[in-house]
Design a protein around this nucleic acid. Structure first.
Lengths: 342, 342
DNA sequence: AGTTAGCACTCGAAGCACGCGAGTGCTAAC
DNA sequence: GTTAGCACTCGCGTGCTTCGAGTGCTAACT
């Protein structure tokens, strides 16, 4: 059923008031919030109707109304003001993100920190294992007589290093052979192709134990890159999402389960999406909601960045900010990648 | 005033019972906990006396007694069983830490994670800027036409890398000149000597803008190493330290202030020390207590590792565990460093 | 037909009295 | 020096009452 103009205005006003004060909105206080004047009795009728339609609910009989998830969804898709992002906020985001450089993973983590400070909410970033990412460079730096520092860089700017020990003494010849092996079997290959079975099929042929252990380490690093996908920043802000005792604790434990969060983030496919705790089967998330945006490079998604907030958060502030933030992030990453190329 | 044997036994029993149940200990329940039999009336007299001496206190008149900080200090220095660490626990710690390798910073962070899981408490690790650490190696890997990946390794196994952009096009000659510059002015120098003023005095002479900007980046990385000093793991366990509302939140915000925590850790100079929240001027720490141990290499302190727990934690479990953990950690780090050498 | 004033009703939150029980200090006897 | 006994304290949980914000319904009004 379509809502008429007045019902829509009432729903929007209730959502805004609830976001601000966090308390059920009654018919009287609602009177003052509307830009047209009707009596509280009329509002009661309208509110009761919105309840029946599933957009509002009452915590208990003698309380005001609060929005339901359905109400929020309508608000976000139809009702809210989509372009409320102030020029000031854009300037701040630009200023915070401009000039950040480094490897893509670092940039993402730091952007998460910044977004958390900007919004006062916990922020999660993920990097999807990009189908289009490939190994760009592998370097080996001798450290001791039996150890080297191996560095792997991907074409999307992900970087990983690890100190590797080998049985043989490190020699220029060994390193030379390893580089040959890498450029034959690894460099330029998409990450998705570099599975452990591929490792077995190719490197097992090389014969040398040290070469094999080095290669195994490199594959380990590549696997790390594929899965090094989740950072959490500003966790102390979790307290803004929950009020009841013990909820924050359980939520924090949930957030540390990377795989769960990752699969949650993967549910979002639109450029910017809202994932209500109520819509997930995860009880710890109940009173919270995720707002998630994609960032990327060259049209390809590199990952997602999202904030966790109370379901009653101010979507008309959070969504445009996050949208702009993610697009700026994409630009910064792209800039860094082209810097690496030229 | 010296406490007689019975008073000491009573104090110890109260501390243990309070650690276990978290509730004030009354004279009757105390009867059952002592290995000699006296009536509750006698215990009441003794407890009242221990109160006057400042080792116990009453939350309110009709409640049992709880230990004071003074009581805990006596317990830790004189009363508690110093060698309760089970062989089993040693085996577990050994198994968890053995085989960890990598750069010192990584090892420390991972050890923190492990200790947190082992104790169920939040863990903080710090690395002190070691007077005896020096730059061991600097490597530069060309990435793009105008960018390189610079890697700095110290003799204590700290590692840092960064992507640096330079104005000139990267050439073997430029890199060669940079290596010469590094080995003249940076390699082998103690970190403490590598200050920004030193940078100005030496590198400014080099003339080339690109060389200078590279060197500046390297000094930035060295400065990062000096200050990359604090990790926090297992923060969700903070809930074990605090019961009252809002305390955890304030504590979490405190813990994210690295400088404050660092100066707290620096107060501890003994191999393993206990820092009571009550003894600090930091109100957020009040109901919590830090147990901190040093780890190091070759007799030199590399940093500290400590757990945060409720003041009523079980010191006779935590202290020996931490002591053993830190010594094992030192061994692992030493092993890794010698691996790098040979 | 839609809007409004009026009114009885509901229900959670806050305040208060009260009894329970764990624990104490004190005294007198052992 | 130790113990039994006893009166006393005080926090905690329970049940009761009051208060008020907010509702739904009805009847009158435009």
């Amino acid at each position: 059923m379509e809502l008429n103009e007045r019902k829509r205005a009432i729903l929007a006003a209730i959502i805004r008031a609830y976001a601000e004060h966090g308390e059920p909105v009654g018919s009287k206080s609602l009177c003052d919030l509307l830009d047209f004047s009707v009596s509280s009795a009329t509002l009661r009728n309208e509110m009761s109707s919105l309840c029946e339609l599933g957009y509002l609910e009452q915590p208990h009989t003698s309380a005001g109304r609060i929005p339901t998830v359905r109400g929020y969804k309508l608000y976000i898709s139809d009702l809210m003001n989509r372009d409320t992002l102030s020029g000031e906020m854009k300037l701040i985001i630009d200023a915070m993100l401009d000039g950040i450089s480094g490897e893509t993973g670092d940039i993402t983590a730091r952007a998460g920190q910044i977004l958390s400070e900007l919004t006062g909410l916990p922020v999660i970033t993920t990097s999807v294992m990009s189908e289009h990412d490939s190994v760009k460079k592998i370097e080996v730096i001798p450290m001791g007589r039996h150890s080297v520092l191996a560095v792997v860089v991907t074409s999307k700017g992900m970087l990983k290093n690890r100190i590797c020990r080998v049985a043989d003494e490190i020699s220029p010849a060994l390193i030379e052979r390893f580089y040959t092996l890498c450029s034959t079997y690894i460099i330029g290959k998409p990450l998705s192709a570099l599975s452990p079975t591929y490792l077995q099929q190719t490197v097992a042929l090389s014969g040398s134990l040290s070469l094999m252990s080095l290669a195994a380490d490199v594959f380990g690093m590549i696997s790390d890159i594929k899965h090094s996908s989740l950072t959490l920043r500003g966790e102390s802000n979790l307290f803004r999402c929950y009020s009841r005792d013990g909820e924050v604790q359980r939520a924090m434990e949930l957030l540390s389960q990377k795989d769960v969060m990752l699969s949650l983030f993967n549910k979002v496919t639109s450029p910017v999406g809202v994932l209500f705790g109520d819509d997930t089967e995860i009880s710890e998330l109940q009173p919270a909601t995720l707002v998630i945006a994609r960032y990327g490079h060259d049209g390809h998604e590199l990952g997602k960045i999202g904030v966790i907030g109370p379901t009653r958060m101010s979507y008309d502030r959070v969504i445009p900010s996050l949208e702009y933030f993610a697009s700026k992030m994409s630009k910064v990453i792209t800039q860094n990648l082209t810097d690496l190329e030229d």
